[in-house]
Design a protein around this nucleic acid. Sequence first.
RNA 1: CGCGGGGUGGAGCAGUUGGCAGCUCGUUGGGCUCAUAACCCAAAGGUCGAUAGUUCGAGUCUAUCCCCCGCAA
Length: 318
Amino acid sequence: MKVLFMGTPDFAKESLEAVYNANYEILGVVTNPDKPKGRGMKMIASPVKQFAEEKGLKVYQPIKVRRNEEFIEEIKSLNPDVICVVAYGKILPKEILDIPRLGCINVHGSLLPQYRGAAPIQWAVLNGDKKTGITTMYMDVGMDTGDMILKEEVEIGDDETTGELWDRLSKIGGELLVKTLEQIENGTAPRTKQGEDFTVAPMLDKQMAKIDWDEKTASEIKNLVRGLNPIMGAYTFLNGKKIKFWKVAIATKREIIAEGMEILKNGTVMISDPRDGLFIKAKDGVIIVLEIQGENAKRMPISDFLRGNQINEFEVFK
RNA sequence: CGCGGGGUGGAGCAGUUGGCAGCUCGUUGGGCUCAUAACCCAAAGGUCGAUAGUUCGAGUCUAUCCCCCGCAA
């Protein structure tokens, strides 16, 4: 079976690698163009491109695919049996979807029809879900609305971060894609319509990363912190300085019971000590900061941070 | 040349107008204690990222280089 692969980030690279290791004939790899990245704005190739070049696969990097006749003709001439699309980053026009005789297969990081859209994994963690998963589907012109093929459920750990879940799902995505290809090849692949009971997981925007001490409960803050780790990091301000939290816990009742605590504003520092840690009052409980990052500094354990950075009790995060 | 921050004992930081290199922890030894990650006493540990320069004198000022980090994508 001849496969054309389309994808860009590391999540997609795992799928490409799985397909490659399963010995499918890969006609080519389509990925987003190199972009200036990081300090000094150096041009960086996508993980998918890096893998493709390593294995000597043909790489295509069209700037746009819609109304790009040259590119569309090129794909037609490759005559793929199936196109695998994993986090490619561009919406494919019907002209391309119609090319492969066995269809375009997509790997999506949620249990469809939940979390259609760009950031399914992030939202599952942000919402504190207990489980999520991977779905493979036949693509159609809608946004993740195609008929489903295979699904695999995954439990989300209480303290798991988006990054950790992302890595696990990347691997599972690759495995499920190969399984899907096998079933398509031997004609046993199921085809299930998505129900209408769907939710959408839009791209994350900057604003949501700021901790709202007045509105958010302790568990909501915890979910925000782990949901944005390592993408953006949840942040707050202390004395005008931007501070990011990378890991927090919620104090259990025994750990701290302060008298008259209700009077304090949400965000107030209750305990700040290199040994004991950093405890902050939240709307309905106490947040314990475990990993923190100061302005222009790197992430570090709270104990390290408090050795050199003074945070006084009764100061308020806002 | 996208913008910005930084390299100081093992860790995280401070170091004012250039004038003996400090803080909080950790480590080691001792003490106190039924006991302790607590407390008390003491000690070890730094050619202040590299090179060149200015100066009576440079962690501090100048130039170049190496490395790290944040933002932005």
